[in-house]
Each structure stands twice: as structure tokens, then as C-alpha cells.
Write a protein that binds this DNA or RNA. Structure first.
Lengths: 151, 151
DNA sequence: CTAAATGATTTAGTGAACTAAACCATATCG
DNA sequence: CGATATGGTTTAGTTCACTAAATCATTTAG
């Protein structure tokens, strides 16, 4: 796991590590705990959902979700709305971060990645895109399988 | 941030997301909290270090580090040794996970990534490796810059 | 229309991990 | 050698997010 022999695996581990580090740093800048950040990821990934759904996705109880959404809302990363037809339900949705600090960090990352992209020809970028897509699918699948082992 | 217009950025965001998801799933399988998992990452990345150094790296107090290392050690992911010459100091080092569950999850991920690699020619893999290296360096740098904004 | 079910919040109590400070062991300095 | 500094652990007390259960509002079923 730590610096495997296979050079491909080593590169992958280092990239993965760097990704996680950036993610953690951004979460800290946003003032979110790891758990809250993870929940926000769920909302962003799967779109607006009710409190019950969010509870199921995160493994929390209904009461804990109330507090969680309070914090996200107060920090300006999510919003509560009433459901159109069923007025018991909430619609919890992610909002664009209001903090200039956060937006600037994201923008700077985008620019930095732009400078990486610049160094590849269109043909090369197609190869990279193909690899990124396959890798993303693989990681997603392995994440699901690994999560299933925990249960 | 959520599904940006630029296709390159969107792919990057999705990869990053998948990486984080796998990392979280593996941490859960290891029975580690996000904070403990992060600390273990520090030890793995920077090698053996004293409790004081680990406290500085994680931003915890000395007392908290005692508890942290207790948990990591008990779960079988780290080990305490006495420092060779200075017997006040600890040497805290990461150990290979003993859990077959964890090792199998890691091995399965390695096999899955191997199947991705198979689908590229040697020339293409050189391109991918170049991209991965540049991206890793960029993410690391941005992680540091972003962390600095928080302080 | 009433009764039961469902969605979210509130409340009370718990547990885990944190800080600050006291403490022991070892090392360094005058 | 004695005084002071440093590394790690222990202790007491605090904080914070969690669960379980009670509660209120709304919807669905009989």
C-alpha cells in the first residue's frame, strides 16, 4: 500500500493521495468537518433529496440529519426548501459556495489544471481522457464493493 | 464546482470524487475515523516520526496524539518504538495492515487498475504517466496553498 | 372522518475525542 | 552536578455530534 513496487500502482497511489489531500484542505477551508463534507458530496453527487434519503445515504438518524443540514445551511453550502406536493418533506439541495476564499481556491485549481492540459496535444488528451474515464469507473465500482465489505 | 462546463474539469471532478469515495470506503473498512485515517496518511507519506512531529503535522496537542497512536496501534496500522539515541522520544511508524479484508480490498483495486492499464499501448501509457505526474504535483501544490488559506 | 403512517424537529442523555495542565523520564546546559 | 528544557503520558473537564424517543405536521388508508 505504501509505495508499491509496480510503478503504475505507485503513481496511482501518489495521485490518489494528492487528490485526498486537496479534498481535505478544501474541506477545511470551507469550515466543514470530514463527515459534513462527505454528506455535502452526497447531495452534490445525487442531487436534491429529502432528509430521510440523506439519512439513508449517510447512515445517520433523522435527528442527526437535522443538525447536519443546519450546519451546511448556516455555512452557506446547502438550502432547505419545502417539497412541492408533500409538505412534510424537505428538499435539501447544494448551493454554490458564497465564500470568495473557497471560490478563489477552486478557480486557482482550475487554472493550475489548465496549465497541465496545455502541455498535451489534442491526440494525447484523448488518451488521457480515456484513461480518466476508465479509472473513474473503476474507482467508483471499487468504492461500492469496498463499502459493501464493511457492512 | 458541481459538473463544470469545461469537459476536462468535469472529468477531473468526477475522478477526484471517485478517488475520495474509495478512500473513504477503505478507511471505513479499516475501522478508522476520517481524522485517524488522515493521520495515518501523514505517517505513511512522511515516514516514521516522533509524537511531537505528528502533533505538529495534524494540529493536535501532545495528549491527543497519545490517544491517536493508541488507536492506530491497537487497530494494527502503526507501531511505537523507542528512539535509538534519545530515549524520551517515540518513533511512530506505519505497519502493513494485518486484516485480510483490507488487504483483499487493496489487492482487488490493484487488479482492477491492472485491467485498465491493459487497455493502453506502451506509448499511450507514457502519455498517461506524464499526465498523472504533472497532475499529482499540481494537486499537491494546490493542497498546500489551499491549506495555507485556512490558517 | 378517524386512525395509522410518514417526515422532520426537538429534547435529554451518552460517548468519543479533544484541550490544558500536572506529571514522570530523559536529555542538555551552565 | 544541579537546574532547566524537552518528549510523552495521564488526568480532569469540556465540547460536539450522535442516538433514541417524544412531539408536531401532514398525508394516506380504512
Amino acid at each position: 500500500m505504501s509505495t508499491p513496487a509496480d510503478p503504475g500502482a505507485r503513481l496511482g497511489a501518489e495521485l490518489s493521495d494528492a487528490v485526498v489531500m486537496f479534498h481535505e484542505a478544501l474541506g477545511a477551508l470551507m469550515g466543514l468537518s470530514a463527515a459534513d463534507n462527505k454528506a455535502l458530496g452526497v447531495i452534490r453527487r445525487e442531487g436534491p433529496m429529502s432528509a430521510r434519503e440523506l439519512a439513508d445515504r449517510t447512515g445517520l438518524t433523522a435527528g442527526a440529519v437535522t443538525g447536519l443540514v443546519d450546519r451546511l445551511e448556516h455555512a452557506g453550502y446547502a438550502r432547505r426548501t419545502r417539497h412541492e406536493t408533500d409538505r412534510r418533506r424537505l428538499v435539501i439541495e447544494a448551493t454554490a459556495p458564497a465564500s470568495p476564499q473557497v471560490n478563489e481556491a477552486v478557480a486557482e485549481m482550475a487554472r493550475a489544471m489548465g496549465r497541465v492540459t496545455e502541455q498535451f496535444s489534442p491526440d494525447e488528451l484523448l488518451v488521457v481522457a480515456r484513461w480518466v474515464e476508465l479509472t473513474t469507473a473503476t474507482m467508483r465500482e471499487q468504492a461500492v464493493r469496498t463499502a459493501a465489505r464493511t457492512a
